[in-house]
Design a protein around this nucleic acid. Structure first.
Lengths: 279, 279
DNA sequence: AAGAGAACAGAATAAACATTCCATTCGGTG
DNA sequence: CACCGAATGGAATGTTTATTCTGTTCTCTT
């Protein structure tokens, strides 16, 4: 409805949605968010299937469409399909389009491209560097732990901090070591039989991380570790360890592959726990 | 019919068509030619509309699909739609290679693969989602700041914690907000003219992050923000904001693309600072 | 050239689909 | 707190759509 004009292309629709997003009723806002986040689903799905995904009624989709001036859901859907037609032409034309986007014209854009490329490379390396059998073993070790101690400092710290967040959401007990100086060793003193640790350290290896992990290992607690070199001191005393080298851009490394690895490990541990619990 | 396998993707279908092209009956050949020449039409059209375009009967389309082992026209159409959905032509080969590496034999390996694939997709989305001009603008804002305040909680916190580490190494003054509860607001109280802030928040948005960023913005301090949806409340008051949706695997999202973005932003800021300093 | 088999067009049918309608709930206001 | 309008969920509806079926037309073989 409204006296305004009906959006004729995706950009216009997006603009219209953003403009009215504050005024939109609850369910319609829900649809709006879903539509902008999953445009492909709207393009190909049926009203029923989309309704399930977006957790609304099919009729809500129709109302949404009418709210923005369309006759019904179908005519709204045309917008989403047209969008795909425009940018679907060939196989590798996409890459050319990227180059034409002007990323390289600005220096900052070139940097962004560089890190993206480095991240892709890191992920490729990840696949070949991680032996699935060892990965599964690491998962088992951590899944059987009562409490998982996450040890990391400096550049590796964001990895364990994310794992701590995810483990928390998954209701798996863990203890993040490396936050405040001083109390780390006190926390680790609580570690005992039935626990396990996950240590991350990249070159140059933080002495603290290595020392703490070693102490834990000497107490008989299994340590799983992630490093960027076979020479890592962590390898000596770890039950399972992984070498994962991040590609760099201009000497700086992002944590893209490590993050993917960490997340996979976290979720795999959660999954294995459920299996264990079911027995 | 035929003892062969039903094509599961567009490439396989194309190969099957070309292989049997000579043996195909007249009308079916006609459909085959049309399908390969106008794949988009097949993807979006209805049997009736395609029949008109290709100058055949709808029933011929059904027979064509069945001739290649599909149950009916609809299941054939899925192949053409899947082709358009594929975000990254070129990566499909890589992903197929992944699957053949034996990772899938173990469940934990499948999870690792899933996150790797999701990370690749996220990175692809990153390239097209970030407007280089806006990125450059964001870099400028942060490069001119005296102190950069990094605001993030929960799932977004690892990103700023990594940036804080990197900024530290690069000798750029920054303040990480979000560590310990309570003192955050006190730290932000120091923020004043000449400073800038970088806020990260993913759905569901932490109220604290939004509130703190808003407070800072209202003091006239420019805020650069990173979110995963255009609906983010951060967008309202940010000088520059970026929407970056991470692909998920089984509902869990890693931070691979966000990490690459964060690192690019960090390094680009450092670079621009040097340029400014030289003048 | 005649017969048999496959291929086809077009109508009939059944399934899927978007849409509409109405009873109920929700959220704001006097 | 009661009221009113907007918003919503869910079933009923009517339309569109794919599919099946049947009589006919090709096409190849002998």
């Amino acid at each position: 409805m409204s006296d305004e004009q009906v959006p004729q292309d995706f950009e216009a629709l997006k603009a219209a949605i953003l403009q009215r997003k504050a005024v939109l009723p609850k369910r319609l806002k829900q649809v709006a968010a879903y539509a902008l986040d999953n445009p492909d689903e709207i393009a190909f799905g049926t009203a029923a299937s989309i309704a399930v995904s977006a957790d609304v009624q099919p009729s809500t989709l129709v109302r949404f469409a009418q709210h923005f001036g369309f006759e019904g859901f179908s005519s709204l859907q045309q917008i989403f399909r047209a969008r795909l037609r425009e940018r679907a032409p060939g196989y590798d034309e996409r890459l050319r389009a990227l180059a034409e986007k002007g990323h390289d014209e600005l220096e900052s854009g070139a940097i962004l491209n560089g890190f993206t490329a480095a991240a892709h490379n890191s992920l490729d390396a990840l696949t070949s560097a991680i032996d699935p059998v060892r990965f599964d073993k690491a998962v088992s070790v951590l899944a059987n732990a009562s409490t998982i101690y996450l040890i990391a400092k400096r550049r590796a710290y964001p990895i364990t901090s994310y794992m701590a967040y995810a483990f928390g959401k998954l209701k798996i007990r863990c203890q993040l070591v490396g936050t405040a100086a001083g109390i780390d060793d006190d926390m680790l003193a609580f570690a005992g039989e039935g626990d396990a640790a996950f240590a991350v350290s990249f070159s140059p290896y933080a002495a603290e991380t290595v020392g703490q992990a070693r102490t834990v290992a000497e107490k008989g607690i299994p340590v799983v570790s992630l490093t960027d070199s076979v020479f890592s001191p962590l390898a000596e005393f770890s039950a399972v360890w992984f070498e994962l080298a991040e590609a760099d851009h201009a000497g700086f490394r992002s944590l893209s592959a490590s993050m993917a690895f960490a997340m996979a490990l976290t979720v795999a541990v959660a999954e294995k726990r459920q299996q264990i619990a079911l027995k």
